[in-house]
Design a binder for these strands. Structure first.
Lengths: 243, 243
DNA sequence: ATAATAGTGTCTGTGAGACAGTATTCT
DNA sequence: AGAATACTGTCTCACAGACACTATTAT
């Protein structure tokens, strides 16, 4: 993790442009981009964490992140780190919130712009081996102790995901291209932490016209196979009730 | 405006903690907090702008902002600047988005955490005189050319306000303590830029149980006076359809 | 009486949510 | 036959949205 490199405080003293303001001391903060990478796998909503090698918070788990490079937008930086960790491109990525509590990093003033990313489990095969030893997926509902304010950040990402689930088709970012309606329902149930009625759920999804039936089916176990669906558009705004 | 003080670029060259990453050059960006301050006054949704005295964008209008001080949280910094500009405390304030395009400030790499604030027009009396010459309220629908990416930021704030109007009672932040239902409806219409049906609007607001009738009325012109209402709670989540 | 805004009620249609039984595939 | 999951339809109730007339206060 890039933030592991220790950076001393840089103090800058400046006069201000406006006459009626007093001379003041500004800290030049460091800016990082941290990413909450979420996926659904094995019936759990999981988040990618990295084990820290250096202090502070040595050996604790943290979300991936790092500094912004010259010429990079914030989103570029997030995309780059996302790629470094997952080896996958074109991942759904969205800015979450910026955190700047003065003591959130004991070494220096570090402001982080948090992003969150959603990736479907079927795109993760490549990653698993890379620096596998200190990178792992954790059940978002059972997090270990996290470094810095990362627990808060992960929870905020989950919160945001819940909200977005209710008024967009964002859930499709977490599923393979073809999926059964039961699989889709499981994603909703996992994120919302709540059982949904199968008939109402299917009625709603189908009436929204956001999925299209494929001619394939999926067998799983010794029972009736399920119809596979694909989705029509990304980012369509919809409304889900039955919160 | 604090950002007027010119700050040179500070370059920092650092090695990273992880072995598999290349040596890279990081810019130490500057971090500001900018605020979109909105109010409803004279039948317009207005935003507070400040005329810049120094280049770049000299004489152009910009939203207020400035650097974060040592020991301040991002929100502290926003609150401080909000108070400096309006002379009013306890204003509704919420983080909007962070902007970090490399060339958004021609002088240096400046990342800004944008906030937006809502204030009711009746709390603005104190302000008007302060540094009145270069501080003015502008109709959000008819902005002058703005410095930096501030036009984009203002539009995003408006956008966010529209969304929040539909699922929270945030509109009350823009009204005096006691108000008529017609005044409340005007706020909705202004922000959503759309006429609403008076009967449906009142039915909805009253059924939500978020306002309470007071025993006062308000006369305005030669016609039937209107009942004044107050709201019960702040921050309650509600749902407004009729988008 | 006139002007001007405040205030009010009904109907229709959509859709959220509750609810249980049949269909299909395998061993 | 049995196990296991896929799949489907009806009813009720709430409420969004369309729509027009009466009430009150002043000049």
């Amino acid at each position: 993790m890039v933030t592991d490199s220790f950076i001393g405080r840089i103090q800058a003293s400046k006069t201000q442009g406006d006459g009626d303001k007093t001379l003041a001391t500004y800290e030049t903060p460091l800016v990082t981009v941290d990413i909450v990478i979420l996926t659904v796998e094995g019936g759990k909503l999981k988040v990618l964490l990295i084990q820290r090698k250096q202090p502070p918070y040595q050996h604790m788990w943290a979300i991936p992140g790092g500094f912004i490079r010259t010429g990079e937008t914030l989103e570029d930086a997030a995309e780059r780190q996302l790629y470094e960790e997952t080896n996958v491109k074109n991942i759904y990525l969205e800015q979450l919130y910026s955190f700047g509590a003065p003591e959130r990093d004991p070494r220096a003033r570090v402001i982080t712009v948090a992003y969150y990313a959603l990736i479907s489990a079927d795109r993760l095969s490549i990653q698993a081996n890379a620096n596998a030893e200190d990178v792992r997926w954790f059940d978002t509902a059972e997090l270990p102790e996290l470094a810095f304010d990362h627990r808060h950040i992960v929870h905020l990402a989950w919160q945001r995901l819940k909200e977005q689930l209710k008024d967009s088709n964002i859930s499709f970012q977490l599923l393979p291209e073809k999926f059964t309606l039961t699989e889709l329902q499981r994603v909703y149930e996992l994120i919302l932490q709540k059982k949904l009625d199968k008939r109402n759920f299917r009625k709603k999804i189908l009436s929204l016209g956001i999925v299209i039936e494929t001619d394939e089916t999926k067998m799983e176990g010794y029972h009736r196979p399920a119809q596979l669906y694909a989705f029509k558009e990304r980012q369509k705004k919809v409304f889900m009730y039955e919160l």
